[in-house]
Every structure is written in structure tokens, then in C-alpha cells.
Amino acid sequence: MYFGESMKIYERIRELSRKYGLRNEEKMILGTDGSVTNLLEILFEGDVIVKTINQKIVDDVNYRTVILEVNDIPLVYATSKTPFKNIEHGLRESIKRDLLSADIPIGRILKMHNLETRREIIDIDVKEVDKEVRKLLKTDRKILPQRTYNIIHNNKILMQITEIFNVGEHL
């Protein structure tokens, strides 16, 4: 579902909150069109550390799975898909290098390269997560808030990101 067509983001979050009792901080993280890294650092008063779980390039598309932690607390399981062809040629190699060689949050990579971007939320939900994700997030909760969004640069999808949040039990 693309938001703005049939349902506004706040309406979807209100619906999920009534059903699942989301905390205000979870609602903010689900609905932000800004940096999740920045919000996590504010909420948990520490630096976000990225732990890469898996990364591979297939057909010039980078697939990356990470855990975002603050103060040794795993808070977000995130997957990203970055088609390198959509990155301006002059920036392509340096962004590719940053994605591949360092555990840097995507929000910081965009900021380091001074890219003007916007986030277009595709889906917000609270869904069941598999056992491996729960293990990586160190939680017994079977359903967790999650969202998928595109990062748009020069009217092209620079990245598609899905985030699963385990924030609520740590606030």
C-alpha cells in the first residue's frame, strides 16, 4: 500500500496502535520520514552501532541485512536493497565502498555524501517475525512493528529498506 492514496500514515498507525497498544515512541519511529538512526540515538542516548548479518551483490544490486544496536541493545533488524545503477555515476563507487566496507547506518551514508533524499513509506504493520529475527533481536515477542520504505534521490529509488523494531520493550 502506498500511503497518501487511500490511507494516511497516521490513520494506519492509529489503527495498529489500537489493535496492538503501540507506545508513542514506536508510533513515531514507524511514521517518520526522517532518520531512524537519529531517533534511536535520541531515545536511547547513545550511538547506533551497525552489525552486518549478511551482505551480497547480485546483478549490481546490494542486499544487506543488519542489526542496529544502541548501548548493546539490539533494536532494529533491517534489510536493504540498493540498485547501484540508480546512484549518480560520480557517487556510485564511494557509496558502494561505504555500504560494503563499513558498518555505517544508511542515514549517515546519505548525510556523508550530502545526498538530498526523501523517504516514501510503502507499508507499516505489526506482523509475526521468524525465529531467527527474534533470536537476533533477543526477544520472545512473536509480533513486532515493522515498515518498508523507499529512499528516493533524483526521482529514482536509491534504496528500499524494511525495518523490524524491537524498541517497545526497552523504553
Rank of each mutant, 00 (worst) to 15 (best):
V76H: 00
R134L: 09
R18K: 14
P105D: 06
N71T: 00
T82Q: 02
D140N: 15
F3H: 04
E116R: 14
E15K: 14
T148A: 03
T139F: 08
F165V: 03
D33Y: 09
Y2W: 12
V61T: 10
K138Y: 13
E41L: 02
I161H: 04
V61M: 03
M159E: 05
E69N: 06
T52N: 05
G90Y: 15
A78K: 00
G21A: 05
R14A: 13
I95H: 00
L40E: 05
D33R: 15
G46F: 04
V167F: 07
G168T: 04
I122V: 14
P74F: 08
S80I: 10
R118Y: 13
F44A: 05
S35F: 00
T65E: 15
Q160H: 10
E120W: 07
R97D: 12
Y10C: 06
F44P: 01
V50K: 01
K135G: 03
E11W: 09
G31K: 01
E45F: 10
E93I: 06
E41K: 03
I87M: 08
N166G: 06
M159S: 04
G34D: 11
R14T: 15
V133L: 12
V48S: 00
L40F: 03
T37P: 03
L16W: 02
S80T: 14
R147A: 09
Y20S: 04
